[in-house]
């Protein structure tokens, strides 16, 4: 629980960041927003992967199955596939501007999945437990579990933020290096 829940929270937060950055890049042609979107996708994919794997490892002793085609599990799998599709789309086109536009549209369309993930346990019958932290009437767990869980969420969020900044910096260096190579080639 102390890994699975923070990983799930960060994977969804990362997608929200991807969608906002893609919107800014698509509408305002903001270069830094495009770099931020490109940098966040592998991180989001990694956290979605962790969510699926740790959930599966906990599902086996709790439900007796590694995987069930439950609404929550399936919508998180779709989130992971959206990240993979975003990365693949950006890598598949030679024209970087076209790839960025196509991937941004994909990211924005895919953001519909975020409320589906959140409300999946309410909209459909699900093996997955309902919301514990944001439950009606306050958190549905004692402080002995809630406090470490919130600390872990904060730690995961900090790690995500730090890694995102490092990746954005790397992406800016890559663009500068490629622009310098282009200038050198033109003489």
């Amino acid at each position: 629980m102390f890994i699975h829940v923070p990983a799930a929270q960060v994977s969804m937060f990362a997608y929200a960041c991807l969608a906002v950055a893609s919107f800014l890049a698509l509408v305002f042609r903001h270069t830094l927003a495009d770099a931020a979107a490109q940098a966040v996708a592998p991180l989001g994919a990694a956290f979605a992967f962790l969510t699926l794997v740790t959930g599966s490892l906990w599902g086996r002793p709790m439900w007796g199955a590694w995987w069930v085609w439950d609404a929550r599990l399936t919508s998180v799998l779709i989130l992971f596939l959206l990240y993979v599709a975003y990365i693949a789309l950006r890598a598949s086109l030679d024209d970087e501007a076209k790839a960025a536009r196509a991937a941004a549209i994909l990211a924005l369309v895919g953001s519909v999945n975020l409320p589906i993930i959140h409300y999946s346990v309410e909209w459909w019958n699900s093996l997955h437990q309902g919301s514990s932290i944001f439950a009606e009437g306050g958190p549905a767990m004692p402080p002995v579990f809630l406090v470490p869980l919130l600390l872990m969420s904060l730690a995961f969020l900090s790690a995500f933020g730090s890694l995102w900044l490092v990746r954005i910096r790397g992406e800016i260096w890559r663009r500068r290096a490629e622009a310098a190579a282009l200038r050198a080639a033109r003489g």
């Binding site: 890694l163 990746r167 910096r169 790397g170 500068r176 290096a177």
Partner: peptide, 18 residues
């Protein structure tokens, strides 16, 4: 570990190339 290593290596490699 993989995320940290890949992110730092990516940033360092492109900084060096630039």
């Amino acid at each position: 570990a993989l995320l940290i290593w890949m992110s730092l290596a990516h940033a360092r490699r492109w900084k060096r190339r630039f």
